[in-house]
Design a protein around this nucleic acid. Sequence first.
DNA 1: CTGGTAGATTCACAGCTGTCGATGTGAAGC
DNA 2: GCTTCACATCGACAGCTGTGAATCTACCAG
Lengths: 115, 115
Amino acid sequence: MRTQVEQVPDGADCCGTPVTGALSESDAADLAAGFAALADPVRLRLFSLVAAAGEICSCDLQGPLDRSQPTVSHHTKVLSEAGLITGERRGRWVYWRVAPDRLDPLRRLLDEPHA
Amino acid sequence: MRTQVEQVPDGADCCGTPVTGALSESDAADLAAGFAALADPVRLRLFSLVAAAGEICSCDLQGPLDRSQPTVSHHTKVLSEAGLITGERRGRWVYWRVAPDRLDPLRRLLDEPHA
DNA sequence: CTGGTAGATTCACAGCTGTCGATGTGAAGC
DNA sequence: GCTTCACATCGACAGCTGTGAATCTACCAG
Protein backbone atom coordinates (compact mmCIF):
# COMPACT_ATOMS: atom_id res chain seq x y z
CA MET A 1 0.00 0.00 0.00
CA ARG A 2 2.12 2.84 -1.18
CA THR A 3 0.65 6.21 -0.44
CA GLN A 4 1.18 7.84 -3.78
CA VAL A 5 1.80 11.56 -3.84
CA GLU A 6 -0.93 13.07 -5.98
CA GLN A 7 -0.29 16.29 -7.82
CA VAL A 8 -2.66 18.74 -6.23
CA PRO A 9 -3.88 21.55 -8.53
CA ASP A 10 -1.71 24.14 -6.82
CA GLY A 11 -4.21 24.40 -4.02
CA ALA A 12 -3.83 24.70 -0.27
CA ASP A 13 -2.10 21.37 0.27
CA CYS A 14 1.60 21.07 0.85
CA CYS A 15 2.28 17.83 -1.01
CA GLY A 16 3.26 17.33 -4.58
CA THR A 17 6.82 18.56 -4.65
CA PRO A 18 8.61 16.68 -7.46
CA VAL A 19 11.67 15.83 -5.33
CA THR A 20 14.84 16.43 -7.32
CA GLY A 21 18.44 15.41 -6.81
CA ALA A 22 18.09 12.74 -4.18
CA LEU A 23 20.05 9.51 -3.78
CA SER A 24 19.13 6.45 -5.78
CA GLU A 25 18.19 3.38 -3.82
CA SER A 26 21.35 1.52 -4.74
CA ASP A 27 23.58 4.48 -3.91
CA ALA A 28 21.79 4.85 -0.60
CA ALA A 29 22.30 1.18 0.21
CA ASP A 30 25.98 1.44 -0.65
CA LEU A 31 26.56 4.53 1.45
CA ALA A 32 24.47 3.20 4.31
CA ALA A 33 26.68 0.12 4.44
CA GLY A 34 29.69 2.39 4.84
CA PHE A 35 28.08 4.38 7.63
CA ALA A 36 26.89 1.18 9.29
CA ALA A 37 30.50 0.07 9.56
CA LEU A 38 31.20 3.22 11.59
CA ALA A 39 28.01 2.99 13.61
CA ASP A 40 29.50 0.98 16.46
CA PRO A 41 31.55 2.62 19.24
CA VAL A 42 34.08 -0.20 19.43
CA ARG A 43 34.49 -0.19 15.66
CA LEU A 44 34.89 3.59 15.61
CA ARG A 45 37.64 3.41 18.20
CA LEU A 46 39.23 0.58 16.25
CA PHE A 47 39.16 2.73 13.13
CA SER A 48 40.54 5.64 15.09
CA LEU A 49 43.37 3.51 16.43
CA VAL A 50 44.27 2.36 12.94
CA ALA A 51 44.10 5.93 11.63
CA ALA A 52 46.21 7.30 14.49
CA ALA A 53 48.85 4.60 14.24
CA GLY A 54 49.05 4.58 10.46
CA GLU A 55 49.64 0.88 10.71
CA ILE A 56 48.77 -1.34 13.61
CA CYS A 57 48.72 -5.02 14.44
CA SER A 58 45.56 -6.82 15.56
CA CYS A 59 47.26 -7.78 18.78
CA ASP A 60 47.66 -4.08 19.61
CA LEU A 61 43.94 -3.50 19.18
CA GLN A 62 42.75 -6.14 21.59
CA GLY A 63 44.13 -4.34 24.63
CA PRO A 64 42.86 -0.77 24.09
CA LEU A 65 39.46 -1.96 22.88
CA ASP A 66 39.05 -4.28 25.86
CA ARG A 67 37.30 -6.91 23.79
CA SER A 68 37.93 -10.57 23.21
CA GLN A 69 40.05 -11.71 20.30
CA PRO A 70 37.09 -13.06 18.29
CA THR A 71 35.21 -9.80 18.75
CA VAL A 72 38.16 -7.72 17.55
CA SER A 73 38.53 -10.05 14.59
CA HIS A 74 34.85 -9.63 13.84
CA HIS A 75 35.11 -5.85 13.85
CA THR A 76 38.19 -5.74 11.67
CA LYS A 77 36.37 -7.97 9.23
CA VAL A 78 33.35 -5.67 9.14
CA LEU A 79 35.50 -2.59 8.57
CA SER A 80 37.55 -4.42 5.99
CA GLU A 81 34.51 -5.65 4.08
CA ALA A 82 33.18 -2.10 4.12
CA GLY A 83 36.42 -1.07 2.44
CA LEU A 84 37.44 1.30 5.21
CA ILE A 85 40.59 -0.56 6.28
CA THR A 86 42.85 -3.08 4.61
CA GLY A 87 44.82 -5.84 6.27
CA GLU A 88 48.14 -7.31 5.34
CA ARG A 89 49.46 -10.51 6.81
CA ARG A 90 53.13 -10.48 7.77
CA GLY A 91 54.24 -13.69 9.41
CA ARG A 92 51.87 -14.51 12.21
CA TRP A 93 50.47 -11.00 12.44
CA VAL A 94 48.01 -8.93 10.48
CA TYR A 95 48.67 -5.23 10.07
CA TRP A 96 45.83 -2.84 9.33
CA ARG A 97 45.77 0.59 7.72
CA VAL A 98 43.00 2.87 6.54
CA ALA A 99 41.80 2.64 2.94
CA PRO A 100 41.01 6.30 2.27
CA ASP A 101 39.28 5.78 -1.08
CA ARG A 102 36.02 4.56 0.34
CA LEU A 103 35.81 7.51 2.70
CA ASP A 104 35.27 9.99 -0.13
CA PRO A 105 31.62 9.18 -0.94
CA LEU A 106 30.76 9.28 2.74
CA ARG A 107 32.43 12.65 3.22
CA ARG A 108 30.75 14.00 0.10
CA LEU A 109 27.34 13.18 1.49
CA LEU A 110 28.10 15.11 4.65
CA ASP A 111 29.34 18.07 2.62
CA GLU A 112 26.30 18.21 0.35
CA PRO A 113 23.99 20.16 2.65
CA HIS A 114 26.60 22.89 2.91
CA ALA A 115 26.74 23.54 -0.82
CA MET B 1 38.82 -11.87 30.98
CA ARG B 2 40.58 -8.98 29.37
CA THR B 3 43.60 -10.02 27.43
CA GLN B 4 46.04 -7.48 28.71
CA VAL B 5 48.82 -6.36 26.42
CA GLU B 6 52.05 -7.00 28.26
CA GLN B 7 55.03 -4.84 27.62
CA VAL B 8 57.48 -7.17 25.94
CA PRO B 9 61.15 -6.41 26.62
CA ASP B 10 61.67 -4.95 23.16
CA GLY B 11 62.02 -8.42 21.74
CA ALA B 12 60.68 -10.05 18.60
CA ASP B 13 57.00 -9.51 19.36
CA CYS B 14 54.87 -6.88 17.71
CA CYS B 15 52.70 -5.86 20.65
CA GLY B 16 53.23 -3.12 23.17
CA THR B 17 52.66 0.00 21.09
CA PRO B 18 51.43 2.72 23.47
CA VAL B 19 48.53 3.79 21.21
CA THR B 20 48.33 7.56 21.01
CA GLY B 21 45.66 9.97 19.86
CA ALA B 22 42.64 7.72 19.64
CA LEU B 23 39.02 8.49 20.43
CA SER B 24 37.77 8.35 23.99
CA GLU B 25 35.00 5.92 24.72
CA SER B 26 32.42 8.65 25.21
CA ASP B 27 33.43 10.47 22.03
CA ALA B 28 33.25 7.20 20.15
CA ALA B 29 29.77 6.50 21.47
CA ASP B 30 28.63 9.98 20.51
CA LEU B 31 30.02 9.78 16.99
CA ALA B 32 28.79 6.23 16.52
CA ALA B 33 25.28 7.40 17.33
CA GLY B 34 25.56 9.94 14.56
CA PHE B 35 26.80 7.41 12.05
CA ALA B 36 24.12 4.96 13.16
CA ALA B 37 21.50 7.49 12.18
CA LEU B 38 22.90 7.43 8.65
CA ALA B 39 23.38 3.68 8.58
CA ASP B 40 19.99 2.87 7.09
CA PRO B 41 19.27 3.20 3.35
CA VAL B 42 15.80 4.62 3.86
CA ARG B 43 17.08 7.12 6.39
CA LEU B 44 19.93 8.13 4.10
CA ARG B 45 17.52 8.81 1.27
CA LEU B 46 15.29 10.69 3.68
CA PHE B 47 18.24 12.83 4.71
CA SER B 48 19.16 13.31 1.08
CA LEU B 49 15.64 14.40 0.25
CA VAL B 50 15.68 16.93 3.06
CA ALA B 51 19.10 18.19 2.01
CA ALA B 52 18.10 18.48 -1.65
CA ALA B 53 14.83 20.24 -0.94
CA GLY B 54 16.21 22.59 1.70
CA GLU B 55 12.90 22.25 3.43
CA ILE B 56 10.40 19.47 2.97
CA CYS B 57 7.17 18.30 4.54
CA SER B 58 6.77 14.81 6.00
CA CYS B 59 3.96 14.14 3.57
CA ASP B 60 6.40 14.65 0.69
CA LEU B 61 8.74 12.02 2.10
CA GLN B 62 6.25 9.20 2.36
CA GLY B 63 5.86 8.88 -1.40
CA PRO B 64 9.51 8.81 -2.57
CA LEU B 65 10.58 6.59 0.32
CA ASP B 66 7.78 4.11 -0.33
CA ARG B 67 7.29 3.44 3.35
CA SER B 68 4.29 3.65 5.64
CA GLN B 69 3.55 6.81 7.56
CA PRO B 70 4.61 5.36 10.95
CA THR B 71 7.88 4.20 9.45
CA VAL B 72 8.65 7.61 7.97
CA SER B 73 7.77 9.20 11.30
CA HIS B 74 10.11 6.77 13.04
CA HIS B 75 13.00 7.66 10.74
CA THR B 76 12.50 11.38 11.03
CA LYS B 77 12.52 10.94 14.78
CA VAL B 78 15.79 9.00 14.69
CA LEU B 79 17.47 11.58 12.48
CA SER B 80 16.08 14.39 14.59
CA GLU B 81 17.25 12.85 17.86
CA ALA B 82 20.67 12.40 16.31
CA GLY B 83 20.66 16.14 15.65
CA LEU B 84 20.99 15.77 11.90
CA ILE B 85 17.66 17.33 10.99
CA THR B 86 15.27 19.66 12.75
CA GLY B 87 11.50 19.76 12.38
CA GLU B 88 9.15 22.69 12.63
CA ARG B 89 5.39 22.32 12.90
CA ARG B 90 3.36 24.69 10.77
CA GLY B 91 -0.35 24.06 11.02
CA ARG B 92 -0.99 20.39 10.41
CA TRP B 93 2.35 19.78 8.76
CA VAL B 94 5.92 19.32 9.94
CA TYR B 95 8.72 20.75 7.83
CA TRP B 96 12.23 19.34 8.04
CA ARG B 97 15.62 20.82 7.25
CA VAL B 98 19.17 19.71 7.86
CA ALA B 99 20.95 20.78 11.04
CA PRO B 100 24.50 21.18 9.71
CA ASP B 101 26.19 21.64 13.10
CA ARG B 102 26.15 18.00 14.05
CA LEU B 103 27.69 16.98 10.74
CA ASP B 104 31.01 18.63 11.56
CA PRO B 105 32.34 16.03 14.04
CA LEU B 106 31.40 13.24 11.67
CA ARG B 107 33.13 14.91 8.75
CA ARG B 108 36.19 15.58 10.84
CA LEU B 109 36.55 11.91 11.66
CA LEU B 110 36.51 11.04 7.98
CA ASP B 111 39.09 13.72 7.24
CA GLU B 112 41.48 12.60 9.94
CA PRO B 113 43.20 9.80 8.06
CA HIS B 114 44.06 12.21 5.27
CA ALA B 115 46.05 14.52 7.50
C1' DC C 1 57.02 -33.58 13.63
C1' DT C 2 55.68 -31.16 18.00
C1' DG C 3 54.40 -27.33 20.52
C1' DG C 4 53.10 -22.55 20.84
C1' DT C 5 51.05 -18.36 19.14
C1' DA C 6 48.13 -14.95 16.09
C1' DG C 7 44.22 -14.74 13.97
C1' DA C 8 39.77 -16.60 11.71
C1' DT C 9 35.57 -19.22 12.10
C1' DT C 10 31.60 -21.47 14.28
C1' DC C 11 27.94 -21.44 17.38
C1' DA C 12 24.72 -19.70 20.56
C1' DC C 13 22.40 -16.02 22.80
C1' DA C 14 20.72 -11.49 24.24
C1' DG C 15 19.66 -7.00 22.67
C1' DC C 16 18.60 -3.90 19.12
C1' DT C 17 16.14 -2.24 14.84
C1' DG C 18 13.11 -1.65 10.71
C1' DT C 19 8.53 -2.47 9.59
C1' DC C 20 3.52 -1.80 9.71
C1' DG C 21 -1.43 -2.13 11.72
C1' DA C 22 -3.96 0.00 15.16
C1' DT C 23 -4.62 3.77 17.93
C1' DG C 24 -3.78 8.39 19.98
C1' DT C 25 -3.08 13.56 19.53
C1' DG C 26 -3.61 18.01 17.79
C1' DA C 27 -4.80 21.23 14.35
C1' DA C 28 -7.81 23.09 10.66
C1' DG C 29 -12.53 23.38 8.60
C1' DC C 30 -17.42 22.87 8.82
C1' DG D 1 -19.69 20.52 18.93
C1' DC D 2 -18.07 16.92 14.92
C1' DT D 3 -15.21 15.45 11.04
C1' DT D 4 -11.00 15.21 8.59
C1' DC D 5 -6.27 15.30 7.94
C1' DA D 6 -1.13 15.12 9.30
C1' DC D 7 1.67 13.24 12.33
C1' DA D 8 3.10 10.67 16.69
C1' DT D 9 2.91 6.65 19.56
C1' DC D 10 2.12 1.87 20.79
C1' DG D 11 2.48 -3.10 20.14
C1' DA D 12 4.13 -6.96 17.89
C1' DC D 13 7.06 -9.41 14.90
C1' DA D 14 11.05 -10.82 11.99
C1' DG D 15 15.69 -9.96 10.99
C1' DC D 16 20.00 -8.20 12.18
C1' DT D 17 24.12 -7.43 15.30
C1' DG D 18 27.63 -7.38 19.12
C1' DT D 19 29.59 -10.59 22.21
C1' DG D 20 32.52 -14.45 23.78
C1' DA D 21 33.61 -19.69 24.61
C1' DA D 22 35.18 -23.23 21.91
C1' DT D 23 37.38 -24.60 17.92
C1' DC D 24 39.99 -24.42 13.67
C1' DT D 25 43.74 -22.75 10.57
C1' DA D 26 48.18 -20.75 9.52
C1' DC D 27 52.64 -19.65 10.82
C1' DC D 28 57.06 -19.97 13.26
C1' DA D 29 60.60 -22.07 16.42
C1' DG D 30 62.73 -26.02 18.17
